[in-house]
Design a protein around this nucleic acid. Structure first.
Length: 572
RNA sequence: GGGCGCGUGGCCUAGUCAGGAUAUGGCACUUGCCUCCUAAGCAAGUGGUCAAGGGUUCGAAUCCCUUCGCGCCCGCCA
């Protein structure tokens, strides 16, 4: 299927090569490569054919190159060093790419509607305190992925799974009900207030056995649907949740829905899951508690048991998660979860339990490594955290200083708005640009970098494009791509042509960081074009063609930023 | 003890799934460029045993094995 003009080019190459291979009476996979600068646009390495044809790779390449007639998107075929090199018919590529971008605008890059529902669970932090930067990697990856999948053509619903039945919530709810705060919260915000209740209650829990008893009783009541307790726990959670959403909203993240864990206890689905698991051949009982023996599912370590009920018959987190995932698959075709790498074993076990329950689908997991500080792992208990709200404040404030320095001409309101957009953009980009599985050591100097590989770099390129377009006046949109002749124009056009493929690739592989790399490349290429190719001072059809390229660049930059959750300012 | 992941110039990082031509960018450092569409920019320079060793291959940062270092996990917690 053709996703973009470059795809059309490679399809034609594949067809041409396969015809030649039939002619040469050899079979081989057609693997294409990107050749280095100056050697064409696509290459076919002939080394694997060498043995079969008993000929030198370079001779084969020459032979194949000679047999392929330039046609359609293929302008020229030559060979060097054992490769067949294909040169794209640039005017054709440019014409269809730029027209595509100018027509589709904010939809440029989109894929065909997929008719596949995706339920993307992300964030799902325990609502017991403010979001810190370590945890923020989850919503950032999740939200970016959701945006990419949507552009790629999927129907995406994002969801936050709220833990409102666990011990932590009970401890916090108990604190809210029984305690007065001893210290002032860091911020006048409920997540900062409630975490203090939580911490004070935990402290009492260590000191006073009677509190332990009260908490245990509350937990039991909660599990057994005691109305007052259930309501208290849920209200407590919702209060904190609301505050957490405010923090996420500041970095352009919102979720489509929430699913409360308590629901699966109340509607009986957890009980049904437990009853069914008990009848499984993998189920074992020990002192009244039940577990699955998962050794045959490849679970290894000290423990291969997966406990699904306590001795008192109550459920565990994992059991409820199983009920949740069964529920998910009644609502979606594909379930994707964004999770910390500490959840890996748990998810492996969950997958095994799902198949024992007769569910043939499994959630796809995007794992990420933790963000730590130079001093070590973030820990609320040790007071070693960077809260998301503080990071937002800092980056926006620093961005304001920069705007103030560079654009004293702007109004205060305008400066503040640009600072917000730039600061938030820098923050998001800085986290999401890194492969999820790599650890990040959080450093303020990196987070506050507005140059080079950063969102502001990309935003700046966008603002430059907007500035040109704003000054251009009217121009002939029936441009002629033959007037795009420089290396800068050609490289930029080819990058834009590849955007739909990049989106499809990021979506299919669930890899948002690849888009961040693309954004950097595109902005760099645009900046070179900007530096060397005058647009407004050009005349006639050359001016029109360049303006068309600028507008195509503008949409591509904007759409790239939009997928990254970064706003694209028209001036900065 | 076992499992999973990571290791690319002083620092950060792309490429690893689908092995191919001189390994991608950024930060920092040195040096140029604003009478020219916004210098949050552009250009040039210094800097690499792709953790180490072995193997497969015409060809390995990429695949396989071993070792080392770092992270995460192995609870009737969530």
């Amino acid at each position: 299927m053709k996703t973009d003009a470059f795809q059309e080019f490679t399809d034609e190459i594949r067809k041409a090569i396969s015809e030649v291979l039939v002619d040469l009476k050899v079979e081989a996979d057609i693997v294409l490569d990107r050749p280095p600068e100056g050697k064409g646009d696509m290459a076919f390495p002939c080394f694997p054919l060498s043995k079969k044809l008993r000929k030198a790779p370079d001779a084969i390449a020459k032979d194949i190159a000679a047999k392929i007639k330039p046609l359609g998107m293929i302008e020229k075929v030559d060979s060097s060093g054992g490769y067949v090199n294909f040169h794209v018919r640039f005017e054709k590529l440019a014409d269809s790419t730029i027209k595509d971008a100018l027509t589709k605008k904010d939809k440029y890059g989109s894929g065909e509607p997929k008719n596949t529902r995706v339920l993307l669970e992300h964030t799902s932090v325990n609502p017991t305190g403010p979001i810190h930067v370590g945890r923020a990697r989850n919503p950032l990856i999740g939200d970016t992925l959701a945006r990419i999948l949507r552009l790629a053509g999927y129907t995406v619903t994002t969801e936050f799974y709220v833990n409102d039945v666990g011990r932590q919530v009970v401890v916090m709810a108990w604190g809210v009900k029984h305690l007065e705060l001893e210290t002032k919260p860091e911020r006048d915000k409920d997540d900062y207030r409630y975490v203090l209740f939580y911490q004070q209650a935990n402290k009492l829990l260590e000191e006073k056995p009677e509190v332990v008893k009260e908490i245990d009783e509350m937990l039991y009541k909660l599990e057994h649907g005691d109305r007052e307790t259930v309501t208290l726990a849920k209200e407590t959670c919702e209060t904190v949740l609301k505050a957490l959403m405010e923090s996420l909203h500041r970095i352009n993240i919102s979720l489509d829905g929430f699913t409360f864990e308590s629901r699966f206890v109340q509607d009986g689905s957890v009980d049904r899951v437990i009853e069914k698991l008990k009848t499984s051949e993998f189920a074992r009982e020990e002192d009244g508690a039940f577990h699955l023996e998962l050794e045959s599912f490849g679970i290894s370590g000290r423990e291969t048991k997966w406990v699904f009920t306590r001795s008192d018959g109550t459920s565990l987190y994992t059991t409820r998660d199983l009920a949740y995932h069964m529920n998910k698959f009644t609502r979606t075709d594909v379930a994707i979860n964004v999770l910390g790498e500490d959840q890996k074993l748990g998810m492996q076990e969950l997958a095994a339990a799902l198949s024992i329950m007769g569910v043939d689908k499994k959630p796809e997991i995007v794992y990420y490594a933790f963000v730590s500080l130079p001093e070590g792992r973030m820990s609320t208990r040790k007071g070693r955290v960077v809260n998301l709200d503080d990071l937002v404040d800092e980056t926006v404030e620093l961005a304001y200083e920069e705007v103030n320095k560079r654009r004293p001409d702007l109004s205060e309101e305008r400066k503040r708005e640009i600072a917000r957009v730039v600061g938030i953009g820098a923050l998001r980009y800085n986290i999401v640009r890194i492969q999820p599985e790599k650890q990040i050591v959080f450093k303020w100097e990196d987070a506050l970098n507005f140059e080079g590989s950063s969102a502001p770099f990309v935003q700046y390129a966008h603002a430059r494009a907007c500035s040109i377009l704003a000054k251009a006046g009217t121009w002939n949109r029936e441009f002629d791509a033959h007037h795009l002749t420089s290396d800068q124009e050609k490289r930029l056009t080819k990058l834009i042509a590849g955007f739909p493929s990049i989106i499809a690739d990021c979506a299919d592989h669930r890899r948002p960081h690849v888009l961040a790399t693309y954004a950097q490349d595109l902005a760099a290429e645009f900046n070179q074009f900007y530096r060397y190719i005058p647009v407004l001072k050009a005349e006639g059809p050359a001016r029109d063609a360049r303006l068309a390229l600028v507008e195509a660049s503008r949409w591509t930059l904007r759409n790239t930023l939009d997928c990254l959750g970064v706003e694209a300012p028209e001036e900065m």
